[in-house]
Amino acid sequence: MAILVNRESRIICQGITGRNGTFHSLACRDYGSNLVGGVTPGKKGAFVDGIPVFNTVEEAVQETGANVSLIFIPAAHAKDPILEAVDAGIEVIVCITEGIPPLDTASALFTVKEKGRVLVGPNTPGIISPAEKCKVGIMPGYIHSPGPVGVISRSGTLTYEVVDQLTKAGMGQSTCLGLGGDPVVGLSFVDCLRLFRDDPNTEAVVLIGEIGGSAEEQAADFIKAEFQKPVIAYVAGRLAPPGKRMGHAGAIISGGSGTAQGKIKALKDVGVEVVENLTKVGQVVREVLK
């Protein structure tokens, strides 16, 4: 078991014939993911290393029964493919694209929620369930291993760092996913915690937060109210000056709110094990799960 994606997932890639779309679709398939098709308008009938390409998502869904989509479309045009995936019935939409105008994301997200679908990202490394051999994203597959730890993060490479530590400490992962570094993203920490709560194969969760917004504070409220499994957290950005976007569009302290200190306190207050030294996360998880 895992959350959101598993060996049953039937995945298409929107933008499969682009450089990144091709590279990562094939990397996902090499990992074991069930890549059933791709979409690039005007390229129907083509194949990307044996993967059939369709003109529309609707057609791809009809022909392949796809229910998960991985989106690699340039930021200026990325709202439309999200809506196209929703209308075609895709259940889990993973949008890798960075730099989408936030109002575009917000408007697409409105429809995603209205139709009860899941949007992961944008600006996410994606989602991976190692025991299910299912990777829908751009993360390096080889650092992951199957096991009982769920990982949720707002960052890419920081997640790789933590997952690498977990694997080296002998702590495999059930599902790892990035929420995305933008100010407005689909899936939240709370959404993921709810899914991990109900996943019998997840025994503990590592939550990797960063400055900006209040997703960590909301996670703390949820953990207090209805999450029993152990949570280990790391929050990046204690040295971030206010008003500056720290690489991620969403990583900004504005008007004194969204500080790492505030988030760390909120999580500690509800009993979350907050690790201050990034390099100790793997070790702490191992101690907690002993």
């Binding site: 890419g156 920081l158 790789y160 990797i208 720290m246 690489g247 790492a260």
Partner: peptide, 17 residues
């Protein structure tokens, strides 16, 4: 010099620790 925003922030934190 770091790659990735989150890891870059975490690197600053580590230096400060």
């Amino acid at each position: 010099m770091v790659n990735g925003a989150g890891l870059a922030m975490a690197t600053l934190d580590l230096i400060s620790i």
